[in-house]
Nucleic acid binder design. Sequence first.
DNA 1: CATTCTATGTCAGACTACTGACATGGGGGG
DNA 2: CCCCCCATGTCAGTAGTCTGACATAGAATG
Lengths: 152, 152
Amino acid sequence: MGGSRSTVDLDTSLGYLLKQAASALRSAMDAALRPLGLTVPQYACLELLAQRPGLSNSELARGAFVTRQSMNVLLQGLERDGLVSRPAEPPAAGRALPAQLTPLGRERLEVASSVVQQVEERMRAGLDADQQGALRALLTACVTALSDSAPK
Amino acid sequence: MGGSRSTVDLDTSLGYLLKQAASALRSAMDAALRPLGLTVPQYACLELLAQRPGLSNSELARGAFVTRQSMNVLLQGLERDGLVSRPAEPPAAGRALPAQLTPLGRERLEVASSVVQQVEERMRAGLDADQQGALRALLTACVTALSDSAPK
DNA sequence: CATTCTATGTCAGACTACTGACATGGGGGG
DNA sequence: CCCCCCATGTCAGTAGTCTGACATAGAATG
């Protein structure tokens, strides 16, 4: 078991490669969404709400991989732009405020989803169906391995 | 999870899964490096300098997936802490200032590399050698596909 | 040789995201 | 029943990162 090598070899490191891939995807999505006036986290929030209406702020934050606080300001911006609506008063049961897409938000998301799908297709250009499934399985394994061994 | 035509299905989206994996890895690395007083980009910078001494600010920025400006302030902090050294004067040929690890920086990196390697090993826990090679190949294919089709 | 293009370093500003902290609502265990 | 623990929403402060812009150095082009 290890300890013999003193530094990580970036050319063969899975972590470095993972970051490189995520960075490339992020840049491509950012460029594709910029003309629509949406950032990547904003798009992620809209997409989450389209598939699971009524998600609360904290649930959206976990789904978009940001903190509650960041998602809160993000949601305020989307509300201000009329893409998302939240009840102003606490919902009688619990504190979580369920958010909903407005018709305008749904419309904006339609366009955003199509450009993002084009980006994803570009990314999968050289992969056949089997390879895509394999990649999905391998990434899932990495995620579960990391979260299972996560302290606290 | 019915596949809708108008929106991206997050449960089967490779992009979403990629972001999830990168986020989990980032969190794990962040937690592992925090006790050492290093952030992930700082660690990336040190690791790059260990393997390719004399890299300039811009080259480090590309290698760490940040902008030149961000890498510049990051380098200033590392210089202030005595982990990295750069010549104060322009090097007669070109504008690029080659950066070097100081002995203290090398020492700090030793510890950081070991904890990061432990994180990577946790991530690869459920993958055998073949699967790791496959994952590497698939991610590389995604990166090249994205950069080849990149506009600009 | 002059011009243009590209790359680099740097400065200024704005924005994004995070950490820390506090109050509130709901569920269990004593 | 009361208390403890966890999750949520929110506020304030801080730190990190990006975009935009400018000047300079070297290469490429005519």
